[in-house]
């Protein structure tokens, strides 16, 4: 059994839960894996550090919660402070580089993206999380870009598909431009998460 655990965090309103939903959908519906998503409930879902977790596996997920994620996607400082210690020492950190200033552990694969600025340049800050998802798909390589892109398309409100896909592609493109040459190494890091 190979299982990859992911935590996504940000502040309520950033689309943390939708991001988790889209990753899960990409894995469970498009990529025929097992993906169990749990979202945070309560006041934190509407302002402070909000979080969603995913357990992705090639067999049924028996234990739905996660303790030491293999991938940590961070979109706010508060979320980073709350969950930073959980990440596995060799786990992948994916972060919003203008909102989060992480203290990196030695040997830890980490990838920053100015997803809010990129979303602003597309005309709508609200798609920041989708930019992040594109960047996540390209960097963590847990599920193919095509499967993720398709999950974005089928998960966003009707009429907003074009903008959201543009945001997704911009996130992927930023990874290729910034980290493109390190792709091999990154792929190996992701493959080791099993």
């Amino acid at each position: 059994m190979s299982r990859t655990d992911i935590r996504i965090t940000g502040f309520g309103g950033q689309g943390v839960v939708l991001s988790g939903y889209i990753i899960g959908r990409a894995c469970a519906i498009n990529a025929s894996q097992h993906a169990t998503m749990i979202q945070s409930f309560g006041p934190e879902a509407r302002g402070s550090a909000c979080s969603a977790t995913l357990a992705i596996s090639d067999s049924e997920v028996l234990y739905p919660y996660i303790s030491r994620p293999d991938v940590f996607v961070v979109m706010s400082t508060e979320g980073y402070d709350k969950y930073r210690d959980e990440l596995k020492d060799d786990g992948i950190l994916v972060y919003e580089q203008n909102l989060v200033h992480p203290t990196l552990k030695e040997g830890q694969p980490s990838f920053g993206v100015p997803s809010t600025r990129i979303a602003e340049s597309l005309g709508r800050t609200i798609v920041q999380n989708i930019v992040m998802l594109g960047f996540f798909a390209a960097s963590a390589q847990i599920v193919s870009r095509e499967d993720m892109r398709d999950a974005v398309k089928s998960s966003v409100p009707p009429g907003t598909e074009e903008l959201n896909l543009k945001a997704f592609d911009a996130g992927c493109a930023h990874f290729d431009e910034t980290y493109g040459e390190k792709k091999e190494e990154v792929g190996a890091a992701a493959a080791n998460q099993g």
Partner: peptide, 9 residues
């Protein structure tokens, strides 16, 4: 609650 709030295929 665990089953109610977990999202799966």
């Amino acid at each position: 609650e665990c089953v109610g709030h977990m999202t799966e295929k």
